[in-house]
Simulated assay, not measured.
Amino acid sequence: MSAISNNAGGCLYLIPNFIGTLPWEYQFPEHNKRIIRSLRYFIAEDLKACRNLLKQAEYPDISQAKIEEYNEHFFDKDISYLLQPLNDGHSVGLISESGVPVLADPGDDIVKLAHQKNIPVVPLIGASAVLLSVMSAGLNGNNFAFNGYLPVEKSEKIRKMKELEQLSFHKKQAQFFIETPYRNQKLFSILLQILQSTTLLSLACNLLNDNPFILTKTVADWKKLPIPDIHKKPCIFGILKM
């Protein structure tokens, strides 16, 4: 397979996908539809989610779209073939399963390779659960970190949560993280047990759905409230020790 040239002529579009059930106009500009319909080659984290996005973008004939799958199962493998269409002057769209590519999703290796090959990278506007949670938390939008998933093992999870709490205090830096949705309720209970009473804890759940839940309270105040139903619902947690 020949190397990708530096003057391929096409570009790599980073295309956001739906993060909730609300329709297109709540999540993306119409411009995204025009870009998607102009492309033939796509790299998708999830094939079904990609085809659904193409359908919502009114793609003329999805059967003619050339879609290559790329997710965590492809890490540490040669991915240069994914950008091969750029050799022939074709642009390529990178599509997440949900939200924006690369941010808490696979794809950074593809973007890095594009930069190495001097391929233009064009991010498109779209909904991001991470950014929406930072915006709505009221913690520190000027200094924050997104930490992805916490460790699965309980003792390691607790150690990491305490570490993030101290980091948020010493750096005045809001710390955001996520959990597998069916573990949300258990994580929330652990947070109430181990965090300091004055630490701010933010929940942003079911964003861009019909029933979103967004609330920031101190741990002490959370303990006075009914336990929110966040089981099996996409949720982003944020903390800031005061």
Rank of each mutant, 00 (worst) to 15 (best):
K33F: 09
K33C: 09
R34I: 10
R34E: 13
R34H: 07
I35E: 07
I35R: 03
I35M: 10
I36D: 01
I36C: 02
I36H: 02
R37C: 09
R37N: 09
R37Y: 12
R37L: 08
S38Y: 11
S38G: 12
R40S: 03
R40G: 06
Y41G: 06
Y41S: 04
Y41M: 03
Y41L: 03
F42K: 02
F42D: 05
F42L: 10
I43Y: 06
I43V: 11
I43K: 00
A44P: 12
A44T: 07
E45P: 13
E45S: 07
E45W: 04
D46A: 10
D46G: 09
D46E: 15
D46N: 13
L47M: 12
K48H: 12
K48Y: 13
A49L: 09
A49M: 09
A49E: 06
C50A: 10
C50F: 03
C50Q: 02
C50W: 00
C50H: 00
R51A: 03
R51I: 08
R51G: 04
N52T: 11
N52V: 08
L53I: 01
L54K: 00
L54E: 02
L54R: 02
L54Y: 00
K55M: 13
K55W: 14
K55A: 13
K55E: 14
Q56T: 07
Q56M: 12
A57W: 05
E58K: 15
Y59C: 07
Y59V: 05
P60C: 08
P60Y: 02
D61H: 13
D61T: 14
I62G: 14
I62F: 14
S63R: 15
S63D: 15
S63F: 14
S63Q: 14
Q64E: 14
